[in-house]
Nucleic acid binder design. Sequence first.
DNA 1: CTATGATATTAATAATTTGATAATAAGAGG
DNA 2: CCTCTTATTATCAAATTATTAATATCATAG
Lengths: 274, 274
Amino acid sequence: MSEFQSEEEFLKAYNPNDYDRLSLTTDILICSVSSEEEENYRKLSKKYFSILLVKRDDYPFKGKWCLPGGFVRIDEELEDAPKRILASETNLHNIYLEQLYTYGSLDRDPRMRVISTSYIALVDKNRLRDKLLPNASWFNVTLLEDEKKMNITLDNGEETISLVIKKTLREQTTDRYKYTIVKNDKLAFDHPLVIAAGLSRLRNKVNYTDIVFNMMPEYFTLGELQQVYEVILGKKLLDPAFRRIIANKVEKTTKVKTGEGHRPSALFRYKVTK
Amino acid sequence: MSEFQSEEEFLKAYNPNDYDRLSLTTDILICSVSSEEEENYRKLSKKYFSILLVKRDDYPFKGKWCLPGGFVRIDEELEDAPKRILASETNLHNIYLEQLYTYGSLDRDPRMRVISTSYIALVDKNRLRDKLLPNASWFNVTLLEDEKKMNITLDNGEETISLVIKKTLREQTTDRYKYTIVKNDKLAFDHPLVIAAGLSRLRNKVNYTDIVFNMMPEYFTLGELQQVYEVILGKKLLDPAFRRIIANKVEKTTKVKTGEGHRPSALFRYKVTK
DNA sequence: CTATGATATTAATAATTTGATAATAAGAGG
DNA sequence: CCTCTTATTATCAAATTATTAATATCATAG
């Protein structure tokens, strides 16, 4: 039973330092697909999916790649931290942002006990007018997944990062799979787990939301859109089936994309449905 | 650039107190359905869904109900905290436990800056042999939801708690809905948000996982199972459709349930499929 | 000891969705 | 103008889901 007469009285006597305190950081999986500019410049024949990594030029994990992130300030709303970091990396505001998972292993940071809440952000590269920070780079993502593991390959044109994450089936006791990093040479912290969680979330959510359009340019062909779905889902889709599913999410414009050496495609736009 | 020559050297010089530190708690939404014992005793004609709340007998929020929870210890794995608390409340181990969401509003705890990672736990009440702690109580849950709001009613036989949570549709900028508490008289902290998040997660996950069986007794009739699905999904299901969906997840036993005043039902058991 | 009520269970059929293949369209490049 | 390539649409088959109806079986009332 309490020795206090009122909530006010209790709070006045309360000493926050009586409890364990720890540090909170946030890590952001920033996702996008290739931009029109990039496609013209590099003569790419298809859309691909990519994530943004930053090279660490300081300890810990000096020289390794990591997700953009940083400490959550004591006087900052939790969701404002990823927004702030996103703005500092890309100079973009008003970005799709969704909380992924909170990681809190005792040994995830060699410096001290750090908890990290991860977020996934989806951006349209065409909106990125400013240059990236010098130590940031977009990595093309390839994901091969089966019941036992995820093979993730990241490639920025100069360097290839190969991750293997084991999926352990758990029966009743908790979430369906437990993810364990079994191969990781070049990424800092437990960031492979964040990437795996983000790609899984995306792969799942693509099926029942319009989330993908956050990464698409304003105008796109259905072929390009289908390629993005295919990369995220990791499988080929049949044209008629894809078009049936997508039909009421997009609207045809009068614009077309020509010069591809074949029949031009109509350009579509995302149609917000109520 | 760093003034250190190695990771070891850096870590030796590192002072954790240079950064903001805050407290981390965990809250657990413990879910179950009515037990056989309870049904016999109270002559219940159907299964219902319930969550466990604890009455606070100390400040802050003295006299209000809240989810079981507590501080995460500095030397404790993040997932071990909810396990520890679950064991102290129910004396059960090896329970289905899944991380829900991390809440970090500046004003969510009047004492100080506290971040809370919430979990959902699913238990079979029939396994609860010990009495509950004196200040804990199971509340029957009714959920009415539409595009604009969630109406949640909690009832433990003596007291009724009525929550209203507004769902604000957000277009592209983030997760589909933003949840805001618009009515809450009897729950502490932001726990109505945790309940809403948990019920949504359950409602969604029921469709593509076997999660429900974590709350079921070993033997159950298909009618009872269907009732649980119906309460979670908040809608009536047609018998043949339900049976088709559930068919390869359960196996018929030779047992039957009689004495109900009508044709007896076969008892089924969960069949773990590879 | 039979009629009735109640839910269990399954059968049968209609409606809808999805899968797969094929046909037609139209610019680029020779 | 012919061929290549991808775009786009049509068509039909296959599978799934929805709906209705029929039958089963015990408890209880009379």
